[in-house]
Amino acid sequence: MRIRSDIFVSALMRRVFSAGGFAAVEEKGAEEAGAVFIRQRLRDGTETVYAPAPQNFFEDEQKATERRFEKRLERVAPDVATELLARERRFDGDLWVIELETDGIEGLFAVVDPG
């Protein structure tokens, strides 16, 4: 069973704050099972967007309970990230968007390599 979205978001935000970064909920989605998108704002003014990883990255049942993300956009202008997230919102009104201001995401959440 996968952890609820609201609990995952709360834990993620605490990890970011404890690492010296900033985190905020930009868009609040369904508490139990809303998809979570992560918008990382970088110091150079660009943004990276992480989206829920496709189901084929969950080989076994134990890993299926863990939320994993894929890098959807990397170091793009803020308006490009905003446009992507607006399209995703039109498709799924229950999604979460979490904004992070941190240099690194290591140890904050799992990112899969599509290659």
Rank of each mutant, 00 (worst) to 15 (best):
R75L: 04
V76A: 07
V76Q: 03
V76E: 07
A77G: 10
A77H: 15
A77R: 14
A77C: 08
P78C: 09
P78R: 10
D79L: 13
V80P: 00
A81D: 00
T82E: 14
T82F: 09
T82D: 15
E83D: 13
E83A: 14
L84G: 00
L84S: 01
L85N: 00
L85W: 05
A86L: 12
A86V: 04
A86N: 12
R87Q: 13
E88W: 00
E88L: 04
R89Q: 07
R89T: 06
R90M: 09
R90D: 03
R90F: 08
F91M: 03
F91G: 01
D92S: 08
D92K: 06
D92P: 02
G93I: 05
G93W: 02
G93R: 10
G93P: 03
D94L: 01
D94V: 00
W96T: 00
V97T: 13
I98Q: 06
E99R: 15
E99A: 15
E99G: 15
E99M: 10
E99W: 06
E99P: 01
E101Q: 12
T102H: 06
T102K: 10
T102I: 15
D103F: 09
D103E: 15
G104F: 12
G104C: 06
I105A: 07
L108R: 04
F109V: 08
F109N: 03
F109R: 05
A110F: 14
V111Y: 11
V111K: 03
V111N: 08
